[in-house]
Design a protein around this nucleic acid. Sequence first.
DNA 1: TTGAAAGCGCTAACAA
DNA 2: TTGTTAGCGCTTTCAA
Lengths: 323, 323
Amino acid sequence: MRQVAKRVTSADVAKEAGVSRTTVSFVLNDRPGHAIPEETRERVLEAARRLKYRPHASARALAAGHSDIVLLALPDMPIGDGVSRFAEELAAALADRGLTLVAHAGADDRSLQDVCAAVDASAVIGLGAFDQATVQALRAAGVKVVIPSDGNAPSMRHVGRLQAEHLIARGHRRLGYAMPTHPSHLPMARHRLQGVTDACAAASLRHPVVIDVELEVVAAERAVRQWTSHSVTGVCAFNDETALAVLAGARVAGVEVPRGLAVVGADDIPTAALSLPPLTTVSFDLREAGRQRAEAVASTLAGRAPAPGAAPVGPELIGRASS
Amino acid sequence: MRQVAKRVTSADVAKEAGVSRTTVSFVLNDRPGHAIPEETRERVLEAARRLKYRPHASARALAAGHSDIVLLALPDMPIGDGVSRFAEELAAALADRGLTLVAHAGADDRSLQDVCAAVDASAVIGLGAFDQATVQALRAAGVKVVIPSDGNAPSMRHVGRLQAEHLIARGHRRLGYAMPTHPSHLPMARHRLQGVTDACAAASLRHPVVIDVELEVVAAERAVRQWTSHSVTGVCAFNDETALAVLAGARVAGVEVPRGLAVVGADDIPTAALSLPPLTTVSFDLREAGRQRAEAVASTLAGRAPAPGAAPVGPELIGRASS
DNA sequence: TTGAAAGCGCTAACAA
DNA sequence: TTGTTAGCGCTTTCAA
């Protein structure tokens, strides 16, 4: 009577359907080649359904030599709307291919490796780029596919470029950059800043005045004063939150936005449009990117050549009153 | 020569250290009872280190009968700062206990179950409560521990209560409630609203005027007009983002905050202090909550009685200029 | 077309 | 104190 609610195994299904476990396995994973008569097939499926059979993931992974798990490596802090949509789309696209997405937040490589090993991840997808050492380490931790394996840093830079170009197009000749202070944002921030720097160089402007801006009014005010004293008239912020801090700093410093200082954020978080003034920002359509990544992962995992990366999805500027 | 970079197994470690796999297993999981001489112990550890041995998670889970995976079930996202900190703390506290946290975002139960099964999760932690049916389903999907299995709704209510009490203490006699529109926020929102309602009842005030507020100025303006026309003088918002929308709406409607309308948010997101006016908000110490949850999960998983839930961490009001 | 059998890498009784 | 051994639930080669 002390039935410990034993797990339903494939053997149970086999018995129920009157076939062998092998057959059950073939049917459930519909292995090609083994043309199984529709009748048997149906019987197995029916039995599985009746028993509410769920294959045991760990056992499957052990036997198959790889799991169905894809890990999304996220930076430590708040997840904006853009990333959410990306994750959503990615998860859906992966699910279509029999893969499961879970997320891990944390900047440091160590924890990423540990988590990969702990969930036995087959692939890791990041937002920015992974450096070579990280990729190595992940491989060692048993991960088969790491994406973007390096090449996609450009898309990060695009964000910065777009911010700067927007400002430059509006006549700003001296730019500032608001750097985040949270360590986990740094790598991405550097890439974005690089984009700003590139744009400045392309327009023969001087290097932007880079200042760390904490998410807090006093610090932001100080930053604003520094910028204005350097005759900066437009600042690109690492992201919308940092931009919001700059807005607040400007308010306190008595600098009018965008007249005295134009600011553009990035990521288009939901509250970006609600600030005073509403924030000009740069946003990605991560949807398509999600689909592409999923395809890349799936095909690489399946041993096929990674599909010829479709048209890269560029970021887009959303003009609002802060610039 | 075509070394396929075979995985390092515990057998390799055993060989290297000149002991049996059992010993390796005991050392690596330092099983008590089997007092292993320090000398052997060190030898095994050293061998493992030298070989860069990583136990295979799936194999471990299969043999042990349970994985080390804890799944954090998040609403569809975006993830604010509060939740981030919670997750961070939770992950750290779980890691201390040998457990690994990964997150899954998605409102529907189906995908939650699937993910649980796919990662072979031992426990699931949610932000709000899970209804009984969901808990059942998760159990069926192989999950051992589901938290909060229902009881923790009170802490949600606390948030609402505190918001309302603050307003009431400042003399407001007619309150409004700004409800989020995103479906995945609804369950939590209902709990928080309940707290507001309770507080109103306790003060013999009428039921709050509940209005859905999208994260967008026009909708928010409309809401503000409705509130003022109902002679509402103070509104509790589901969270800070919603509150920010209300602030923006009030601005457009020409209603001065807090003079014409006081507003209090919840969660203390980093940008809450950066708005105009800075947002009064209620915040949780999710850190402590994270630690508690971790302890609860770990002890339940270990078969110990779920520790006598320490002093419940209450939310705390952070007064700023919006109320 | 189906089944038997050999593991995948690890844990945990039970012996020694 | 350490080793032997039998699985955990599934996949997959090889035979039947």
